[in-house]
Design a binder for these strands. Structure first.
Lengths: 163, 163
DNA sequence: CATTTTTGTTATATAAGACAACAATACTGG
DNA sequence: CCAGTATTGTTGTCTTATATAACAAAAATG
């Protein structure tokens, strides 16, 4: 590769400027950054496992809360999940349109809705969760191990207490 | 799973439908859910610490990466942070308008921009980081402890490897 | 009773993120 | 060298997520 006689040779030597690994700098020690990257990775894996179910994490969480607390009022469900009640309306609307959950009159309070899963919703949630455990949580435990997962859950709880 | 029965005869004493603690149900064992709650709490605390700096997590991350890798190309910065290059444009625009970062011609590639912090940007980042360590990370370590933080960082990295 | 609070809802705004297209430039194989 | 292809920064557009304000109906309060 002798230099073909080219006029106006670039002043810089042609060092191909390879891919240096990019130093994270201050981010390396920032818990929030590392937490976010991990959370995005886990949600991504969740979505892959839920392909075919058309179920996003927030939707799953709503179904799970209703299943564990049938008849709970709408406001209490959204509050428990940290979802603003205004935004919760459309979320629940879709679950209701899909016949997975339903709003019922709350006994003793005509303002409130008591939320329940439909029979279809219960079966759907059970299937989704089985898929989740079989694929998603399986992959999680593959990289983490069961003991480390429990350890991690405990550490995360301490952080959640920050807010 | 429990059938959505009426609460006809509570086995416990006559608690008049007070605020039961809301059972997390399936969510209790779902790492993604717990991760998200922790991440939101930590980001919330970050935002509190950065009040007055008008600096969101993503903006901080951009400044930190540029500071640690001066002259890095725009595409490499966005890629390192997992930010889609189209969305990165406006993000960088704002940092440039605030005179914290600047686009410079990349030597040897007229398509690319080499990114640098301005002197103001370097001072700003240093101040922001000092505030962050003094307040945010301090609170984090208060609930977590230094050793547990390092432990947690290691566990999070394993999860990030999922994606 | 009058007043205030709660509940579900709509409307609206912003931020984040994904995706497609495009012009300019760089790279590649012949 | 050229023609086709790939990359870079950019704009435009969509979709989610999230926050706030306002409102009517109903409940709680005093």
């Amino acid at each position: 590769m002798a230099a073909p006689r080219r006029k106006s040779a670039p002043v810089t030597a042609e060092i191909p400027e390879e891919k240096q690994p990019v130093d994270l700098g201050l981010l390396d020690n920032l818990l929030g950054y590392r937490l976010r990257r991990a959370q995005l990775a886990v949600f991504q894996d969740f979505l892959v496992a839920m392909k075919g179910f058309e179920l996003r994490p927030a939707q799953f969480s709503v179904l799970a809360i209703i299943a564990a607390n049938p008849g709970l009022k709408q406001s209490r469900v959204s509050e428990a999940l940290g979802i603003n009640r205004a935004n919760f309306v459309a979320l629940l609307d879709e679950l209701e349109q899909r016949k997975l959950a339903r709003r019922a009159p709350a006994p003793g309070d005509r303002r409130s809705n008591a939320l329940y899963l439909t029979p279809k919703g219960e079966g759907f949630l059970k299937d989704a969760y089985r898929h989740l455990v079989g694929q998603h949580e399986k992959r999680v435990e593959a990289v983490l191990g069961s003991a480390d997962k429990q350890l991690l859950l405990g550490l995360l709880d301490k952080l959640t207490a920050l807010a």
